[in-house]
Amino acid sequence: MRGFWGKALAIAWKDILAEARTKDMVLSMLVFSILVIIVFNFAFESSAEQTAQVAPGVLWVTFTFAGVLGMNRSFVQEKDRGCLEGLMLCPLDRGVIYTGKMLGNFIFMLLVEVIVLPVFSILFNLPLFAPRLVLITVLATLAFSTAGTLFAAIAVNTRARDFMLPILFIPVVVPVIIAAVQASGLALAPGPGEGYWSWLQLIVVFVVIFLAVSFLVFEYVLEE
C-alpha cells in the first residue's frame, strides 16, 4: 500500500495524464491569459514608467482569472464524466483527494505561468526574471490552489457552477492578491525592496491555514 503522499501523487498524476492527452485546461488558461494581457494593453496605453507601475497588477489579475477558469475545469471534468463518484468510491481519505487535486491544479497553473511570464515580459518590455518574483509567483500560486481547489469542489456541485467559483474564491483570496501584487512590485523595483519578506510571510500563513482547514473540511464538501 502506498502512503499518504503516494496516493495524493497518484491522483495528481491521473490529472496530469488526462491533461497531457486533452490539453484542455492549460491551453484554455494560456490563451485566456494572453488575451487578458492584450486587453490590458489597450486599457492602459502607457509610457514605460507607467507600465512598470501597473505591470504587477496586470500580472496578478491575469493569474487570478486564469486560475479561476482552470480550477473550475479541474472539477467540471471529474463531474461530467462521473469520475468524481469513482474517486469518492476509492478507499481514500478525503484529505488525500484534496491534496491530489490541489497538487494537480498547482502544477497546471505553474505551467501556464512559465509560459505567460516570458510573453508578458516581452510585451511589456520588463525584466521579469528576478528570482524574488519567481519565488512570490510560486508561493502565491500555491495559495491560489489551496483555496481554489476547495471552492472548485463546492462550486461544481451547485446549480450555478460556472459563476459560483469566482464569487467564492475571489473575496477569500484578497490577502493573497494584495500580497502578490505588492511583493511583485517590490521585486521588480530597483533597490532592496523593504517589506517584501513580510508579504511573503503573509502568503505562507495563508497557505498553512488553508491547507489545514481545507484538509479538515474537505470531507464535508465531498459527501454522499
Binding site: 456541485n157 477569500v172 484578497v174 490577502p175 500563513v205 464535508y220
Partner: peptide
C-alpha cells in the same frame, strides 16, 4: 448540501477575515 457548503464557507470565511484585514492594513 447547501447547509454543508455554507458551513464550510462560514468557517473558512471567518478565519479569512483577519488575514484580509491584515493585508489591507499593510497595503
Amino acid at each position: 448540501q447547501g447547509a454543508r457548503f455554507a458551513a464550510v464557507l462560514g468557517i473558512v470565511g471567518f478565519i479569512d477575515v483577519p488575514l484580509v484585514a491584515l493585508a489591507i492594513v499593510w497595503w
